[in-house]
Structures are given as C-alpha cells and as structure tokens.
Amino acid sequence: MEVRTIKVFTTVDNINLHTQVVDMSMTYGQQFGPTYLDGADVTKIKPHNSHEGKTFYVLPNDDTLRVEAFEYYHTTDPSFLGRYMSALNHTKKWKYPQVNGLTSIKWADNNCYLATALLTLQQIELKFNPPALQDAYYRARAGEAANFCALILAYCNKTVGELGDVRETMSYLFQHANLDSCKRVLNVVCKTCGQQQTTLKGVEAVMYMGTLSYEQFKKGVQIPCTCGKQATKYLVQQESPFVMMSAPPAQYELKHGTFTCASEYTGNYQCGHYKHITSKETLYCIDGALLTKSSEYKGPITDVFYKENSYTTTIK
C-alpha cells in the first residue's frame, strides 16, 4: 500500500517557510505537534488534498525554529505562539472599519479597549522592536488589523473576551517599542525636605499616572512627601515624541487643539466601556464603527496623549 502524501510549508514567522512532505494517514499533531492554519487549530486533523502548498504555523520545537521565533517575536515564552494563534482565530472574524481616516474595530468580545489602543497607536510616533509587531502594525494602518490585535493580546497575556485596560495595554506595548531616546527629568520640591531631581528613561519617561493635564504637570502637581507634608512635583525636561497622561476616570474637559487623542471610560472596574476622542479640525468621538463630532467635550476621561518633541522648564 502506497503512502499518500502532500507537500506543505511549516513556519513560526510566515517569513521562513520549511518544506514538509506530510503523510495523509496521520494527523498534523502526530507529525508536527500543535499546528495552526489561519489561526485555526488543526492539530487533530489529517492532511487533505486542499492543504497542498498551504502554510501551517507550528510551535518552535527545534533550534532553527526557536531562533526564527525569537528573532521575529522577541520572546522565548513557549506558550506565546499558541496564544497568538488562538487569538487570531477570533480577531480574523472582527470587522476593521476605516473611521475618520483611522483603522478602528467594530465592537465584539469586549474589544473596546483594543480599538482605543489601536486608534491611539496610529496617532503617536512609535516604532516597535519585534519585527512581528512592526509588520502587523503597518498592515493594521492599511486596514488589516487582525494579526496586530492578536499579537497585542498575546504580548499582554490576554484572551479574547476578557476586559482590558488601555493604560495597561499601552504599557505592555511600550515595553516592546523603541523608547531608548526618551528621557524625563522631574523635580520634587518640599518646604521641609528641599528639592530632589529624578531622571527617568524609556517607558517611565512617557507615562504618568495622577493627572490628565500635561500643562498642569509642567506647572506642578501636589504629591505627598515622605515627611508627610505636601510637596510639588513638576516637569523639568521632556525628550520624547509623545507623552501619555493618565488618571482614574473623572469628568474632564478636553479643549480642541490642546491634545492629540484621549480615552474615555464609562462604567466601573468590573464592567465598563471605552471610547476614543481625537482632536482634528474639530473633536471626534470614535466608538467602534461609530463616529460623532463636537466642538467641545466633557466626560469621564482616563488617558490623554500629547505630541511632544523637546521641553525644558522655565521655572527657576
């Protein structure tokens, strides 16, 4: 009895394709271990004539594949690729409408935090270190965002349907971005203890939790000093293409032309909904596939993004 075979390709990165001759009487799992086709788990399936010449994702289970996976995804987590594939199996079914010149995501599976993050990423200057993220990001900007969303979920250790947080998501993504040249110098002034300067680099240099107003941050924000008295913390120097200011959701007025974009969060910790506000020729609110415009805006804002380049204080 002759062994019926077909020729397929296996890959971990969709760049390096490895030619395989597979036995049609055995499952993919018996031949390769966990195997995925377009995100779908085909591990328990036997090869079919229609699979001839198709590319299958496999887990990096030998040295060659491990090197290829690390170079593309910059992670050695053995569960990463499987999590990416199972997320992709959902995100490829989502709709990605162009809204006001940006790629958004039609609401499904509690994905409003991903839509808000995706919209924000198209408006701030950011370059990702893992080629996987950078490639998928370019495709997302062009309207094909399924891979990018699935990668975000995998890097953030999230599953489809789980509630997510924009600030946490951005923080994970910033860790995989090139923020080497970003720098922030802060000064804390206390009447009792004097003053202390701190220099922050990388992710810490672009994120701040405690106030939404970048102007206020430049002037000074009140913080408790270690001595128990009130101290003032203010920005001395900022070198970065953008800054992200966050605070627990509270009524906040966004003035046209003073910011790049913002995240609105309605609801409580267990259950809520994100919308995205962007400042173009007027203010726009993007909620999944829905767009509304207004000249002014007041609502429960939790993150505001500002364009920056270089700032030095005039406070002496």
Score class of each variant (00 low, 15 high):
T232Y: 09
E144F: 08
E281P: 02
P248A: 09
C190L: 01
L121A: 10
E204R: 14
F70E: 11
Y284P: 00
I6P: 07
Q251H: 15
I315H: 15
I124M: 06
I124S: 02
C225A: 01
H273Y: 00
T258M: 11
K316L: 15
Y36P: 02
A145G: 11
V21G: 11
K106I: 09
L65S: 11
E253D: 10
K307T: 15
C193V: 02
V8C: 12
R83K: 13
T120W: 02
R184I: 04
G82S: 15
G143A: 04
I301F: 00
K229I: 08
E296D: 15
T266I: 10
L81H: 08
V42C: 15
E71W: 06
V203L: 09
V185R: 06
E162S: 08
N268V: 07
A142E: 15
V236A: 10
Q197D: 07
V189R: 09
K7H: 15
S295V: 11
Q230N: 12
P300E: 11
N110Q: 01
H90Y: 13
Q237W: 08
I105D: 05
K158A: 06
H90A: 13
R141A: 10
A69L: 12
L163C: 15
S79F: 08
E144R: 08
T232P: 01
I301C: 01
E308W: 04
P130W: 02
Q31M: 13
L179M: 07
K307M: 12
T116W: 03
H90Q: 14
Q216S: 10
G272H: 00
L114D: 03
L179G: 02
L81G: 07
Q195K: 13
G164A: 03
L186K: 01
Y57Q: 08
G33T: 04
K127V: 11
N110M: 02
K93F: 11
A108M: 07
V166W: 03
G210E: 01
E125K: 09
N61K: 12
T11N: 06
T27V: 14
F174W: 05
V243C: 05
A136K: 03
C261Q: 01
T10M: 08
S263P: 01
A117V: 12
L290Y: 15
L200K: 11
N111E: 04
A289E: 15
A262C: 01
M26Y: 12
T64I: 14
G194P: 07
A247T: 06
L163R: 15
C225N: 00
T266A: 08
R83D: 05
L254N: 02
A205H: 03
E52N: 12
L235G: 01
K307Q: 10
Q30G: 12
A87D: 01
P60K: 02
S279Y: 01
K7W: 10
T312Y: 11
G210T: 01
K219E: 09
L119P: 06
D41K: 07
I15N: 10
N61W: 14
V22C: 13
E281H: 05
C190S: 01
M170D: 03
F305I: 11
E264D: 06
A247V: 04
L59T: 13
A132I: 03
K95W: 08
K54T: 14
T302L: 00
K280F: 11
Y284M: 13
T192C: 10
T313D: 14
G29M: 11
F80W: 04
E168Q: 14
D109R: 03
N49L: 14
D63V: 08
F9Q: 13
T27G: 08
R4T: 12
A150I: 01
V22D: 06
T292W: 07
R83H: 07
T232N: 06
Y137R: 03
Y138F: 15
H74D: 05
I315Q: 15
V8D: 03
Q20T: 13
L37Y: 13
A250T: 15
P241Y: 00
I301A: 00
G53Y: 12
F174R: 00
T43N: 08
Q237S: 14
H256R: 12
Y36I: 04
A108E: 08
G33S: 05
E296H: 15
Y214T: 01
I15K: 14
P47Q: 04
D41M: 10
E52Q: 13
F305M: 03
M85T: 06
E281C: 04
V243M: 05
T116M: 06
N110R: 05
E281R: 04
K307G: 07
P47S: 05
F56A: 06
E215T: 08
C261G: 00
P224I: 14
T64R: 10
Y306M: 00
V99Y: 12
N49A: 13
T35V: 12
L126V: 14
T76P: 14
T75A: 10
Y297M: 06
K54A: 14
R66Q: 12
S295A: 14
S295K: 15
T169K: 01
H74Q: 11
S295C: 08
S79V: 10
N89T: 12
Q222I: 10
T282H: 12
V304P: 01
L126H: 03
R167W: 02
K191P: 15
A132W: 05
E215W: 06
I105T: 04
E168F: 05
V189H: 12
C261K: 01
F305P: 00
G33P: 07
V185K: 06
V22H: 03
W107H: 02
R141G: 07
L186R: 03
A140E: 05
V166A: 08
G272E: 01
K54Y: 15
K275G: 02
G220N: 01
L81C: 09
T5V: 11
V221D: 03
Y155P: 00
C193H: 02
T35Q: 05
K316H: 15
F148P: 02
N157A: 05
G39W: 07
R184T: 05
T314V: 11
P249E: 00
C227E: 01
Y72H: 13
Y113C: 02
S79D: 15
E239L: 10
Y172M: 11
N178F: 04
A117R: 03
L114R: 03
Q238G: 02
Q230P: 12
C227K: 01
L235C: 08
H90G: 11
I315E: 15
E2C: 12
G288V: 00
R184W: 05
V243A: 01
L151G: 02
K191C: 12
E215H: 07
A262W: 02
N16A: 08
T120V: 13
E308C: 09
T258K: 09
N100P: 04
D77M: 06
D287L: 00
P60C: 07
L121H: 01
A262G: 00
K293P: 11
Y284D: 09
G33K: 03
F70I: 08
R4W: 12
N111M: 03
E239R: 10
C149N: 01
M244D: 00
S246E: 01
C156S: 09
S310N: 12
P300R: 14
C285F: 10
M24W: 07
Y265S: 00
D135M: 09
K255E: 14
G39K: 06
T314E: 10
Q222N: 11
M207W: 06
I6W: 07
F70T: 08
I286F: 10
K255P: 07
S279R: 02
F242P: 02
F174E: 01
P47L: 04
E71K: 10
F259L: 01
T64N: 13
E296Q: 13
Y214S: 01
T169S: 04
Y113D: 02
V22M: 11
I277R: 00
A142W: 11
Q175R: 11
T312E: 11
Q270N: 15
M245A: 02
Y28L: 12
N147V: 10
